[in-house]
C-alpha cells in the first residue's frame, strides 16, 4: 500500500462518522461532527471491525449478494430467490456457451412493461462473481476474511480492493439498479470511504 493511498484514505476518513451500531452510510454527506474526537479513543481494531460491519450493509444487500451466490447460479430480487430463468455461471462467469449474460442483460438497465420485473439490469461487464468470491450464506466475518484473502479475491491487494469497491462501475450499479429495485444503502462514494477507512484502520475482520 502506498503512502499516497494511506494519506488519501486518512483525509477521507474524517468525513465519515463511525460509531458501532449507528448507520454511517446515511450521514456521510454531513460534515464530520464532534464524535470524531471520541473515535480516536476507540481501539483501532474495534473501530476497523465497526467500519467493516458498516460496509457489510452494502456487501450484504441483494444488489451485491445476488451475483455472489453460494452456488454457481445467480439469485435475483429482494428475496434473493433463484434467478429465473435458471442460469449457470459457465466456466468464465458469463453463462454457458451459447447463452451469455448479455443474451438478456444489455450494457445498461432496460425498463420493461413487467410488473414484478420492471427492468432488466444491465452493465457492459455484467457477469457472475467467481466461485471463490461466493458470499451468500456467510457471516460478515467470513466475507471479510475472504475479501482480504489473495487466493479468494482475485489476487487483489487491499489497495486494489479499495479501488474496486470505490470506483468499479459494476459495483456502482448497486446504487443505480434500475426500475423496481432497491439500491444498496448509501452511495458508492460513501461505501468507498468506509472501505478505505477500514483498510486504513488495519482492515480488521469481525469475529465469527
Amino acid at each position: 500500500m502506498t503512502r499516497d493511498f494511506l494519506h488519501a484514505v486518512a483525509s477521507l476518513a474524517v468525513l465519515c462518522t463511525v460509531v458501532p451500531g449507528v448507520i454511517a452510510l446515511n450521514v456521510v454527506s454531513s460534515t464530520a461532527d464532534q464524535t470524531a474526537a471520541t473515535d480516536v479513543q476507540q481501539p483501532a481494531h474495534e473501530r476497523s471491525v465497526a467500519l467493516f460491519l458498516d460496509a457489510a450493509r452494502v456487501i450484504e444487500s441483494p444488489r451485491c449478494m445476488n451475483c455472489h451466490p453460494a452456488t454457481r447460479s445467480p439469485t435475483q430480487g429482494e428475496a434473493m430467490r433463484l434467478h429465473t430463468p435458471p442460469i449457470d455461471a459457465g466456466s468464465e462467469g458469463h453463462g454457458p456457451l451459447g447463452l451469455n449474460c448479455n443474451t438478456c442483460h444489455g450494457s445498461e438497465n432496460v425498463s420493461t412493461i413487467g410488473i414484478d420485473i420492471a427492468s432488466i439490469p444491465g452493465h457492459p461487464h455484467w457477469m457472475l462473481a467467481p466461485a471463490s468470491m461466493s458470499w451468500q450464506g456467510k457471516t460478515p466475518g467470513e466475507i471479510c476474511r475472504q475479501i482480504k484473502d489473495l487466493t479468494r479475491n482475485g489476487g487483489r491487494t487491499l489497495e486494489q480492493i479499495h479501488e474496486h469497491m470505490a470506483k468499479d462501475s459494476l459495483v456502482g450499479w448497486a446504487w443505480n439498479p434500475g426500475d423496481g429495485r432497491e439500491p444498496a444503502p448509501g452511495s458508492q462514494e460513501a461505501f468507498g470511504i468506509l472501505v478505505g477507512e477500514w483498510i486504513a484502520t488495519g482492515a480488521a475482520c469481525p469475529e465469527g
Binding site: 429465473t84 447463452l99 448479455n102 443474451t103 420493461t112 412493461i113 413487467g114
Partner: peptide, 18 residues
Amino acid sequence: GIAMCGACTVHVDGEARR
C-alpha cells in the same frame, strides 16, 4: 416482455439476444 421465455430470441452479431 421480460426475457423470461425466449420466444423473441434473435442473433445480434452472432450471439443470442432476447
